Simulated assay, not measured.
Amino acid sequence: MTTRKPIRKAVFPVAGLGTRFLPATKAIPKELLPIVDRPLIQYAVDEAREAGIEQMIFVTGRGKSAIVEHFDVAYELEATMSERGKDLSILDSTRFTPGDIITVRQQVPLGLGHAIWCARAIVGDEPFAILLPDELMVGNQGAGSGTGGTGCMKQMVEAYEQVGGNLVSVLEVPREDVSSYGVITPGESRGTLTEVRGLVEKPPVEQAPSNKIVSGRYILQPEVMRTLEGQEKGAGGEIQLTDAMARMIGTQPFHAVTFNGRRFDCGSKTGFVEATLALALEREDMGEEVRAMARRLLG
């Protein structure tokens, strides 16, 4: 049996300005906007932890220090809660062992590929995961046990343990929507795994090789960093991660994992509202009330 290096590190690109959510994001990072009662970044971090990832690398920009503070110990808050007999376990998911949260700065917004390249020294020579917090991924109940089922990254890590190499998560979308995403050229399929023979960023509908879009989760080998060093610009004049990954096809195994779950595009206002409503409806403590409220509003 082939021994593969485990996926211990995850990169979270969180340097974006969040202009689509202004004025809410003037002083608050969009990654801290709440879906029900947890900030968006918390869902991605919890997903990474579920997959066995130990070290979280945040690629930040100016004004994003509150993201790191969210995962720090809040002494005054915890002391006050303790004095009042409040349960502190609600904060468990925000606590980390010292050294397990690392931040690097992306000083200039040159694209997703550039943001990932900024983490090259911390990633080192290990395979690593990438999670885009704007993409809220909720596993179907049939994908595992617990609320929402098995998360996307855990599904990917399980696939990685079988095939190694590079992996992306994919979902099928209506053909007319493909020009908004990275799209794969599919090869042979086996279960949820599909061989990736090509990648193209935001193709015109008539030129798209499939309707399988890359959905914000990646497991990549460290060689991608050397590919990104060229700083070559692609679609939109930015350094595209998709272009760097495409150059690795044929040199290393490359597969897509069809995610057994739902994706919410929380980079858009409507997607953010949809995620909030969908997750609230599934909550035992509030689902019925929210359902009744929705009926009143729609009535």
Rank of each mutant, 00 (worst) to 15 (best):
Pro174Ala: 10
Gly144Pro: 03
Gln107Gly: 12
Asp125Phe: 09
Val178His: 00
Gln155Ala: 07
Ser180Pro: 03
Ser180Tyr: 14
Arg105Ser: 08
Asp134Arg: 08
Glu172Pro: 04
Arg175Thr: 14
Thr194Ile: 01
Tyr181Cys: 05
Leu136Val: 09
Gly148Tyr: 03
Arg197Gly: 07
Leu199Asn: 08
Val183Arg: 05
Ala159Ser: 09
Gln106Asn: 15
Glu158Thr: 11
Ser179Met: 13
Ile184Gly: 07
Tyr160Cys: 13
Ser169Asn: 05
Val138Thr: 03
Val178Asn: 04
Ser169Cys: 05
Val123Thr: 05
Gly142Ala: 14
Gly182Met: 02
Glu176Ala: 08
Gly144His: 06
Glu126Met: 06
Val123His: 06
Val183Gln: 12
Leu132Ile: 14
Thr185Lys: 05
Ala143Trp: 09
Leu199Gly: 04
Gln107Val: 11
Glu195Ala: 06
Gly191Arg: 01
Ser145Ala: 14
Leu131Ile: 13
Leu110Asp: 11
Cys152Trp: 06
Glu188Ala: 00
Leu110His: 03
Gly142Val: 15
Arg190Pro: 03
Pro174Leu: 07
Phe128Asn: 05
Val108Lys: 10
Gly146Asp: 04
Val173Asn: 07
Leu171Met: 14
Gln141Asp: 15
Ala119Pro: 04
Gly139Tyr: 06
Asn140His: 15
Gly148Thr: 07
Asp134Gly: 00
Tyr181Ile: 02
Gly148Glu: 14
Leu136Pro: 01
Ala143Val: 01
Arg190Tyr: 11
Pro127Tyr: 10
Val168Asn: 03
